[in-house]
């Protein structure tokens, strides 16, 4: 007694078709399920992203948006640096630092490469150590430890001031500008500054007569006194040799005599060279004018 509206009669023995049976079995296969659940969404996402980025203008717009966003964050007042403060430096060094950094404030702290800037500041001759940091309130804080000048070095290029380790501190216009510092000269002298300083210290008793140290042949020192006297020191054991000379001087008043060279290069055989006609002039000591040598 089914209705006569043309609807199909109910199926008596419904059975899946071969195709639907196979599809159902395929659907129940775990690998296939995993492929559908993970593989297809991933593929769709990757495909959509690739299609979107594939277009030149869209890609440019994407990058523009990114940079704009980045800039707007960088330009926030919290990240701006307004001024620079330099501690522990003399006015000339401060000026040098300002020149080489050449920052026009205000600037975003993202644009400051502190490590690079520290390298630049530390690269200055007069600077031994530099620390840079951005302190709250937008201040670029630079703490500088300057090199302490120890000797004046006369080289082929002119005069320079070196610190106790032999690093160049600054150039010097004339020797007279720093008469308090001892003088060294000669090629390679700048590499042996600590030794030179110890030699100067040893020469304390005759300090008023010392003109300077000359590096000879980049291997040994000559101590130059006034009256063109020279003490030739050996390559090794220079300090000991100098002490022997000082001891001789104190005992025998040797350097006050008319001697041009005290040759200590061979420690077993110290040699003296007398000035020409020295015997004639004994007792008639001649004073030489002490004075600065023009640089």
């Amino acid at each position: 007694m089914r209705p006569l509206d043309g609807s199909p009669p109910p199926r008596r023995d419904p059975a899946p078709t071969r195709l639907s049976y196979r599809l159902h079995r395929l659907w129940l296969t775990p690998f296939f399920r995993a492929l559908l659940r993970i593989g297809i969404p991933v593929f769709c996402l990757v495909f959509a992203a690739a299609w979107y980025v594939g277009d030149e203008t869209r890609r440019a717009a994407l990058f523009d948006t990114y940079y704009e966003l980045r800039r707007s964050i960088e330009q926030r007042p919290e990240f701006m640096v307004a001024m620079m403060q330099i501690d522990g430096a003399s006015p000339e060094v401060v000026q040098d630092i300002q020149e080489i950094l050449a920052i026009d404030f205000p600037v975003s702290s993202f644009e400051l490469d502190l490590e690079y800037m520290r390298g630049m500041v530390a690269g200055l001759d007069a600077v031994e150590k530099a620390e840079l940091r951005i302190s709250p309130g937008g201040i670029l804080q630079i703490e500088v430890v300057e090199r302490q000048p120890a000797v004046v070095w006369r080289s082929r290029d002119g005069l320079a001031v070196l610190d106790a380790q032999g690093h160049r501190v600054s150039a010097l216009q004339s020797r007279a500008a720093r008469p308090d510092l001892p003088l060294i000269a000669g090629d390679g002298a700048q590499d042996r500054v600590p030794e030179a300083l110890s030699l100067f210290a040893a020469a304390g008793p005759i300090a008023d007569r010392v003109r300077g140290l000359v590096r000879v042949g980049e291997r040994r020192w000559d101590l130059v006194l006034d009256r063109n006297q020279r003490i030739l020191l050996p390559e090794t054991g220079a300090l000991r040799a100098l002490e022997r000379v000082i001891a001789l001087d104190q005992a025998e008043d040797m350097l006050a005599r008319d001697i041009v060279v005290v040759d200590m290069r061979i420690s077993a055989r110290p040699t003296l060279r007398l000035a020409p006609g020295a015997t004639l002039k004994t007792g008639n000591t001649r004073t030489t004018q002490a004075g600065a040598i023009e640089g």
Binding site: P14, A15, H24, R25
Partner: peptide, 15 residues
């Protein structure tokens, strides 16, 4: 067809 029906229904129940 009958075997297919039974197997499919059982598979469906067993997931």
């Amino acid at each position: 067809r009958a075997i297919r029906t039974a197997v499919q229904a059982a598979q469906k129940m067993a997931q």
